[in-house]
Protein backbone atom coordinates (compact mmCIF):
# COMPACT_ATOMS: atom_id res chain seq x y z
CA UNK A 1 0.00 0.00 0.00
CA UNK A 2 1.83 3.02 -1.23
CA UNK A 3 -0.63 5.58 0.07
CA UNK A 4 0.15 7.03 3.42
CA UNK A 5 -2.43 6.71 6.10
CA UNK A 6 -4.08 10.02 6.71
CA UNK A 7 -6.23 9.49 9.75
CA UNK A 8 -8.21 12.66 9.41
CA UNK A 9 -9.05 11.94 5.84
CA UNK A 10 -10.14 8.44 6.72
CA UNK A 11 -12.27 9.64 9.58
CA UNK A 12 -13.99 12.10 7.32
CA UNK A 13 -14.56 9.46 4.68
CA UNK A 14 -15.96 7.01 7.16
CA UNK A 15 -18.30 9.63 8.54
CA UNK A 16 -19.49 10.36 5.07
CA UNK A 17 -19.94 6.69 4.32
CA UNK A 18 -21.95 6.07 7.45
CA UNK A 19 -24.48 8.63 6.41
CA UNK A 20 -25.20 6.78 3.24
CA UNK A 21 -28.39 4.83 3.33
CA UNK A 22 -30.01 3.00 0.55
CA UNK A 23 -32.66 4.86 -1.41
CA UNK A 24 -34.17 2.68 -4.08
CA UNK A 25 -34.38 3.99 -7.59
CA UNK A 26 -37.86 5.05 -8.59
CA UNK A 27 -38.20 3.64 -12.09
CA UNK A 28 -40.07 5.40 -14.87
CA UNK A 29 -42.00 2.19 -15.42
CA UNK A 30 -41.74 -0.86 -13.24
CA UNK A 31 -41.94 -4.06 -15.22
CA UNK A 32 -42.98 -7.25 -13.51
CA UNK A 33 -44.31 -10.74 -14.05
CA UNK A 34 -47.80 -12.08 -13.82
CA UNK A 35 -48.47 -15.79 -13.33
CA UNK A 36 -51.69 -17.72 -13.28
CA UNK A 37 -51.31 -20.17 -10.38
CA UNK A 38 -54.32 -22.25 -11.41
CA UNK A 39 -54.04 -22.64 -15.16
CA UNK A 40 -50.29 -23.32 -15.07
CA UNK A 41 -49.70 -27.00 -15.77
CA UNK A 42 -46.32 -26.82 -14.07
CA UNK A 43 -44.40 -28.06 -17.08
CA UNK A 44 -41.29 -25.98 -16.41
CA UNK A 45 -40.67 -25.16 -20.07
CA UNK A 46 -40.07 -21.63 -18.79
CA UNK A 47 -37.35 -22.90 -16.46
CA UNK A 48 -35.57 -24.82 -19.17
CA UNK A 49 -35.84 -21.98 -21.67
CA UNK A 50 -34.28 -19.74 -19.05
CA UNK A 51 -31.44 -22.15 -18.37
CA UNK A 52 -30.74 -22.44 -22.07
CA UNK A 53 -30.84 -18.69 -22.57
CA UNK A 54 -28.53 -18.05 -19.66
CA UNK A 55 -26.23 -21.00 -20.25
CA UNK A 56 -26.64 -22.43 -16.77
CA UNK A 57 -25.47 -25.83 -15.63
CA UNK A 58 -27.79 -27.94 -13.53
CA UNK A 59 -27.92 -26.31 -10.12
CA UNK A 60 -28.70 -22.64 -10.34
CA UNK A 61 -32.31 -21.99 -11.36
CA UNK A 62 -33.22 -18.44 -12.18
CA UNK A 63 -36.86 -19.43 -12.53
CA UNK A 64 -38.53 -21.82 -10.17
CA UNK A 65 -41.94 -23.38 -10.68
CA UNK A 66 -43.08 -24.34 -7.22
CA UNK A 67 -45.68 -26.99 -6.60
CA UNK A 68 -48.12 -26.62 -3.76
CA UNK A 69 -50.33 -29.56 -3.04
CA UNK A 70 -52.70 -30.20 -0.20
CA UNK A 71 -55.88 -31.76 1.03
CA UNK A 72 -56.58 -35.33 1.98
CA UNK A 73 -57.38 -38.10 -0.45
CA UNK A 74 -59.58 -37.82 -2.43
CA UNK A 75 -60.23 -34.13 -1.78
CA UNK A 76 -56.94 -32.75 -2.93
CA UNK A 77 -55.74 -29.72 -4.76
CA UNK A 78 -52.61 -28.61 -6.52
CA UNK A 79 -51.42 -25.30 -7.77
CA UNK A 80 -48.19 -23.72 -8.88
CA UNK A 81 -46.40 -20.54 -7.93
CA UNK A 82 -43.85 -19.51 -10.49
CA UNK A 83 -41.14 -17.03 -9.61
CA UNK A 84 -37.84 -15.88 -10.93
CA UNK A 85 -36.58 -12.50 -9.77
CA UNK A 86 -39.42 -10.26 -8.70
CA UNK A 87 -37.52 -7.09 -9.60
CA UNK A 88 -38.59 -5.62 -6.29
CA UNK A 89 -39.36 -1.96 -5.83
CA UNK A 90 -37.06 -2.04 -2.82
CA UNK A 91 -34.74 -4.97 -3.41
CA UNK A 92 -33.03 -6.45 -0.37
CA UNK A 93 -30.26 -7.95 -2.44
CA UNK A 94 -29.00 -4.64 -3.72
CA UNK A 95 -27.77 -2.92 -0.54
CA UNK A 96 -26.04 -6.08 0.67
CA UNK A 97 -23.65 -6.12 -2.25
CA UNK A 98 -20.16 -4.95 -1.34
CA UNK A 99 -19.03 -4.50 -4.93
CA UNK A 100 -21.96 -2.69 -6.51
CA UNK A 101 -22.67 -5.57 -8.83
CA UNK A 102 -26.42 -5.35 -8.33
CA UNK A 103 -28.30 -2.44 -9.81
CA UNK A 104 -31.81 -1.38 -10.57
CA UNK A 105 -32.56 0.18 -13.93
CA UNK A 106 -34.19 3.57 -13.97
CA UNK A 107 -36.10 3.03 -17.20
CA UNK A 108 -37.93 -0.17 -16.34
CA UNK A 109 -37.07 -1.11 -12.76
CA UNK A 110 -35.26 -4.29 -13.75
CA UNK A 111 -32.93 -5.45 -10.99
CA UNK A 112 -29.86 -6.85 -12.64
CA UNK A 113 -26.59 -8.27 -11.43
CA UNK A 114 -23.33 -7.79 -13.21
CA UNK A 115 -21.78 -11.07 -12.17
CA UNK A 116 -18.39 -9.98 -13.48
CA UNK A 117 -18.25 -7.70 -10.46
CA UNK A 118 -19.37 -10.40 -8.05
CA UNK A 119 -16.93 -11.85 -5.54
CA UNK A 120 -19.30 -14.60 -4.42
CA UNK A 121 -20.02 -13.52 -0.85
CA UNK A 122 -23.62 -14.68 -1.26
CA UNK A 123 -25.15 -11.99 0.92
CA UNK A 124 -27.71 -11.14 -1.74
CA UNK A 125 -28.71 -14.77 -1.98
CA UNK A 126 -29.40 -14.86 1.73
CA UNK A 127 -31.16 -11.52 1.84
CA UNK A 128 -33.66 -12.17 -0.94
CA UNK A 129 -36.91 -13.39 0.60
CA UNK A 130 -37.86 -15.17 -2.62
CA UNK A 131 -34.74 -17.09 -3.55
CA UNK A 132 -33.95 -15.18 -6.73
CA UNK A 133 -30.16 -14.82 -6.66
CA UNK A 134 -28.65 -18.17 -7.51
CA UNK A 135 -25.20 -19.28 -6.53
CA UNK A 136 -23.27 -20.95 -9.31
CA UNK A 137 -20.83 -23.26 -7.54
CA UNK A 138 -18.76 -23.74 -10.68
CA UNK A 139 -18.03 -20.06 -11.18
CA UNK A 140 -18.21 -19.31 -7.45
CA UNK A 141 -20.52 -16.42 -8.28
CA UNK A 142 -24.07 -15.32 -7.86
CA UNK A 143 -26.23 -14.90 -10.95
CA UNK A 144 -29.86 -14.14 -11.46
CA UNK A 145 -32.71 -13.25 -13.77
CA UNK A 146 -32.45 -9.93 -15.55
CA UNK A 147 -35.81 -10.21 -17.29
CA UNK A 148 -33.88 -10.80 -20.52
CA UNK A 149 -33.06 -7.14 -20.94
CA UNK A 150 -31.60 -7.90 -24.35
CA UNK A 151 -34.98 -9.19 -25.49
CA UNK A 152 -36.80 -6.29 -23.83
CA UNK A 153 -34.52 -3.87 -25.64
CA UNK A 154 -35.17 -5.69 -28.91
CA UNK A 155 -38.89 -5.14 -28.38
CA UNK A 156 -39.65 -8.72 -27.40
CA UNK A 157 -40.47 -10.51 -24.19
CA UNK A 158 -38.30 -12.68 -21.93
CA UNK A 159 -37.57 -16.27 -22.88
CA UNK A 160 -39.67 -17.69 -20.06
CA UNK A 161 -42.76 -15.77 -21.14
CA UNK A 162 -42.29 -16.77 -24.77
CA UNK A 163 -41.79 -20.39 -23.69
CA UNK A 164 -45.06 -20.71 -21.82
CA UNK A 165 -47.12 -23.38 -23.55
CA UNK A 166 -50.24 -22.41 -21.63
CA UNK A 167 -49.71 -18.65 -22.03
CA UNK A 168 -50.09 -18.17 -18.28
CA UNK A 169 -46.88 -16.24 -17.73
CA UNK A 170 -46.44 -12.69 -18.97
CA UNK A 171 -44.77 -9.39 -18.23
CA UNK A 172 -46.02 -5.86 -18.21
CA UNK A 173 -46.09 -2.65 -16.23
CA UNK A 174 -46.72 -3.97 -12.75
CA UNK A 175 -49.42 -1.47 -11.81
CA UNK A 176 -51.45 -2.60 -14.81
CA UNK A 177 -50.95 -6.20 -13.80
CA UNK A 178 -52.11 -5.60 -10.25
CA UNK A 179 -55.21 -3.84 -11.54
CA UNK A 180 -55.79 -6.74 -14.00
CA UNK A 181 -55.84 -4.12 -16.74
CA UNK A 182 -52.98 -5.57 -18.73
CA UNK A 183 -54.16 -7.23 -21.90
CA UNK A 184 -52.67 -10.65 -21.49
CA UNK A 185 -53.71 -14.27 -21.90
CA UNK A 186 -52.23 -14.94 -18.47
CA UNK A 187 -55.23 -13.31 -16.82
CA UNK A 188 -58.48 -14.96 -17.80
CA UNK A 189 -61.84 -13.25 -18.08
CA UNK A 190 -63.17 -12.10 -14.71
CA UNK A 191 -59.94 -13.03 -12.99
CA UNK A 192 -58.38 -10.82 -10.34
CA UNK A 193 -54.72 -10.42 -9.61
CA UNK A 194 -53.18 -10.49 -6.15
CA UNK A 195 -49.77 -9.43 -4.95
CA UNK A 196 -49.31 -12.16 -2.41
CA UNK A 197 -50.20 -15.82 -2.10
CA UNK A 198 -49.95 -18.20 0.83
CA UNK A 199 -46.52 -19.20 2.06
CA UNK A 200 -44.86 -16.44 0.11
CA UNK A 201 -42.62 -14.16 2.16
CA UNK A 202 -44.12 -10.90 3.36
CA UNK A 203 -44.20 -8.58 0.38
CA UNK A 204 -43.57 -5.58 2.61
CA UNK A 205 -40.00 -6.80 3.03
CA UNK A 206 -39.05 -5.71 -0.47
CA UNK A 207 -42.24 -4.91 -2.42
CA UNK A 208 -41.84 -7.49 -5.19
CA UNK A 209 -43.08 -6.56 -8.66
CA UNK A 210 -45.16 -9.64 -9.32
CA UNK A 211 -48.83 -10.49 -9.56
CA UNK A 212 -50.63 -13.81 -9.38
CA UNK A 213 -53.99 -15.14 -10.35
CA UNK A 214 -54.34 -17.19 -7.17
CA UNK A 215 -55.83 -20.59 -6.51
CA UNK A 216 -58.75 -20.53 -4.09
CA UNK A 217 -56.58 -22.36 -1.56
CA UNK A 218 -53.71 -20.00 -2.15
CA UNK A 219 -55.47 -16.80 -1.31
CA UNK A 220 -54.47 -14.74 1.67
CA UNK A 221 -57.10 -12.69 3.43
Amino acid sequence: MSETIEKAKIKEAVKRRKLETYTPVKPEVQLGFVHNNVDCIGCRACEIACKDKNGLAPGPRFRRVQYIEGGTYPNVYVYKVNMSCNHCAEPACLPTCPTGAIFKRKQDGIVDIDSTLCIGCRRCEAACPFGAPQFDPVDNLVKKCNLCVDEIEAGRKPYCVMACMMRVLDIGPIEEIWDAELETPAIGPEEKVVRQVKNMANIELTKPSIGFVPHSKGRVK
Binding site: R64, Q66, V81, M83, C128, P129, F130, G131, K198, N199, M200, A201, N202, V220, K221
Partner: peptide, 10 residues
Protein backbone atom coordinates in the same frame (compact mmCIF):
# COMPACT_ATOMS: atom_id res chain seq x y z
CA UNK B 1 -50.39 -18.15 5.89
CA UNK B 2 -49.51 -18.33 9.56
CA UNK B 3 -46.68 -20.76 8.94
CA UNK B 4 -44.26 -18.33 7.46
CA UNK B 5 -41.32 -20.58 8.06
CA UNK B 6 -42.24 -22.20 4.79
CA UNK B 7 -41.77 -19.43 2.35
CA UNK B 8 -41.84 -21.06 -1.01
CA UNK B 9 -38.37 -22.37 -1.51
CA UNK B 10 -36.36 -20.28 0.88
Amino acid sequence: VAMTDFTLRK
